[in-house]
């Protein structure tokens, strides 16, 4: 059963899209991530114009984050104040990202920047995660003790002005690092069509030193606000949001996420992290290494009429 997407202007197989949405939803529920980094490349591979895929993913990511943030907020594991500061940075970042993406498309370099961003960010994050989780697995096998966690927070976090109290995170820090972090994730969300959880979560743990219990919920809260803004901006500036596409993905994604969340209880945390790291690395390499091979077709048509 094929369905014609009104904005993408291509015909796609609807059950296939729902199934892919469910698969990515399952993975996102399993690992507690948005899954945008996986879905956007798949959509492009299926022949959906990259600009439409990136923009429509904002709606999809906002919706799936919305469905999970509610349960986190019931467990009081969302730091709304920290989320708000991150989102304020995210708003600036997403405006800048949408404009940058528009400009890159006109220059004809959007594909290059998207591919490089995937290679660099997924490569670094996936590599670090794999290193950390493989170490944890090896230590457990050898029954070695956990390395003592450095509780001392980096001094630069405290030297900066504009300090604010974040009671739920038990932090009293400057708002500048979270603002910058939010802005960076906002740009990524506009350019890569991702929520940015894969950058936010490690940064909140290792840079801001937030307690692990509030990290995922707060990151989801910030992602909702940033992607909601990105989605509206993409629709308003570039007319590239396909609501039919987002709805199809959502249908499968919501179901898949619920099963994924249940399945995650059966695995150890470090094994899940190692698996996720491999997945992240694989996607990054798949997207980025194409840049280094001699293309079969030296010419490429640019989408959009510029």
């Amino acid at each position: 059963m094929d369905i014609y997407l009104p904005i993408a202007e291509v015909s796609v197989n609807a059950p296939l899209l729902v199934a892919l949405g469910a698969l990515v939803g399952f993975i996102s529920g399993l690992f507690g991530i948005g899954g945008g980094f996986l879905m956007t490349p798949i959509l492009v591979f299926l022949g959906i114009p990259p600009a439409v895929a990136v923009a429509s993913m904002s709606n999809h990511v906002a919706a799936s984050s919305m469905s999970s943030v509610i349960s986190y907020s019931r467990k009081r594991s969302v730091d709304f104040r920290m989320g708000g500061v991150l989102a304020a940075g995210g708003a600036v970042g997403s405006v800048a990202g949408v404009e940058a993406f528009r400009w890159l498309r006109l220059l004809g370099q959007a594909d290059l920047v998207v591919a490089l961003s995937y290679l660099v960010f997924l490569g670094i994050i996936g590599g670090l995660m794999f290193w950390e989780s493989a170490g944890a697995i090896l230590r457990r096998r050898r029954n070695a003790p956990e390395p003592p966690r450095r509780e001392r927070r980096p001094p630069w976090l405290y030297g900066l002005p504009l300090k604010l109290r974040f009671p739920r995170s038990r932090l009293y820090i400057s708002v500048i690092p979270p603002l910058l972090l939010g802005a960076f994730v906002g740009v990524l969300s506009a350019i890569m069509g991702v929520g940015g959880g894969f950058v936010l979560v490690p940064a909140m743990v290792y840079l801001l030193r937030m307690p692990a219990s509030v990290v995922v919920g707060t990151s989801l809260f910030q992602i909702i606000i940033t992607t909601a803004l990105t989605g509206v901006l993409q629709a308003g500036r570039n007319q590239t949001v396909d609501i039919v596409l987002a709805a199809l993905l959502l249908l499968g994604g919501v179901l898949g996420a619920q099963f994924g969340a249940r399945a995650s209880a059966r695995f150890r945390a470090e094994e899940l992290r190692a698996l996720l790291a491999l997945l992240v690395l694989l996607v990054g390499l798949r997207m980025g290494l194409g840049l280094f091979f001699t293309p079969h077709e030296p010419f490429v048509l640019m989408s959009g009429n510029g």
Binding site: N59, S67, A228, A235, I243
Partner: peptide, 19 residues
């Protein structure tokens, strides 16, 4: 702009309904 707002409202509503 109104399309973008409506599309996002629909997406957020769908996420809320699913949860």
């Amino acid at each position: 702009w109104s399309y973008g707002l409506a599309a996002m409202a629909f997406a957020l509503g769908a996420g809320w309904a699913a949860s």
